[in-house]
């Protein structure tokens, strides 16, 4: 690990100001950052510990009937919160499908959103990676890219975002509330947080230096049944090959409305407007669910080892929709 200075922030303004300096990074749970620091993939000069910021670990009900989740709430705390379990079971299910309890006890809401890819070539410092070393190339493009993305990526980077939590939040229309070093507060829809890799895959979000995610806002829970389904190589403690978050409302023999978001298919949780349009008013049958899957994946492109993700995503969507609407 490269040497660094460590500061414990005692307020949001001080934290943002400190973290705006070049080479500075926020640290909360540290479960991703410290791992990357050991490998010298991350080499911060200053760590600003935001673990004890006031109110960062509070979940509160909002006037509009939703929840405001402090960015410092742990993944365990969020998944175990009874309001989340009753009103947003999708979110509890998604969080509980990720990592181990030890990691969820440390990992925070904000940190989970900003965790970095698990692309094996990002982790292998002997290989080119445009995300880790801009301009060096992408070893995954023609490499063992089984875990990589099939949607929305570029020939410069095919890394997938590994979060489960963020997939549920995307289906739930979450917004992030951030604070900038100048004190400005803004709300960012979760879908707008992540930047497409294009030819600058090392720039992953729209956040400015020192801009801190303060909380995540969930609007009132949507109508319909919420189901998160994760497909992985083993039954527990593994990253997803594909995951699907569905909120679907049935009306008689039809789907009144549905929301669909995929995990591990792209650089961000992939909300599919195409699948949602295909499902609106459609018959509640496997034929409709297959059509939604075809619509969702129509622009997908495999890179060899990950070709299987495209049919797997379609079938996982079909099964998850069938579960959600009771077919």
């Amino acid at each position: 690990m490269k040497p660094f200075r460590y500061e414990r922030a005692n307020g949001v303004a001080a934290a943002c100001a400190a973290a705006a300096a070049p080479g500075a990074r926020f640290i909360a749970g540290g479960t991703n950052l410290i791992d990357l620091m050991k490998l010298q993939i991350e080499t911060p000069e200053l760590l600003v510990d935001i673990g004890l910021l006031p109110l960062a670990d509070i979940i509160e009900s909002t006037a509009e009937g939703g929840l405001r989740i402090g960015a410092g709430v742990t993944n365990s705390g969020l998944a175990a919160d009874m309001r989340v379990r009753r009103l947003y079971p999708l979110l509890s299910q998604a969080i509980l499908a990720g990592a181990s309890t030890q990691l969820r006890n440390k990992a925070t809401t904000g940190g989970n959103l900003l965790q970095r890819t698990r692309c094996p070539y990002f982790y292998d410092t002997t290989k080119p990676c445009n995300k880790r070393a801009p301009g060096s190339g992408c070893a995954a493009l023609h490499g063992i890219n089984r875990m990589n993305a099939v949607m929305g990526v570029s020939d410069d980077c095919i890394a997938a975002h590994p979060s489960d939590m963020a997939v549920a939040m995307t289906a739930l229309d979450a917004r992030l509330e951030t604070v900038a070093p100048d004190g400005a507060i803004r709300a960012i829809p979760i879908d707008a947080l992540y930047r497409a890799p294009g030819n600058t895959p090392h720039i992953e979000t729209v956040l400015a230096p020192g801009e801190l995610i303060r909380s995540v806002l969930l609007p009132p829970p949507p109508q319909g049944r919420q189901v998160y389904r994760k497909v992985r190589d083993r039954a527990s403690f593994a990253f997803a090959l594909v995951s699907v978050a569905v909120v679907a409302e049935r009306e008689g023999d039809r789907v009144r409305a549905a929301r669909v978001a995929f995990g591990s298919l792209s650089y961000k949780p992939w909300r599919s407007a195409e699948a949602e349009a295909s499902l609106e008013g459609a018959s509640a049958t496997r034929t409709s669910f297959d059509a939604a899957g075809i619509a969702a994946l129509k622009n997908a492109r495999g890179y060899g080892h990950n070709d299987f993700k495209i049919p797997l995503a379609r079938r996982t969507l079909r099964a998850t929709l069938a579960d959600a609407v009771g077919v």
Binding site: G29, T31, N105
Partner: peptide, 22 residues
């Protein structure tokens, strides 16, 4: 690197991987 759990300790009543925290 947080995968095996051999380093698990209990901090403020909750189990964590002591290898992935400073």
């Amino acid at each position: 690197q947080g995968q095996c759990g051999a380093c698990t300790v209990i901090v403020n009543g909750q189990r964590i991987n002591s290898c992935l925290t400073l």
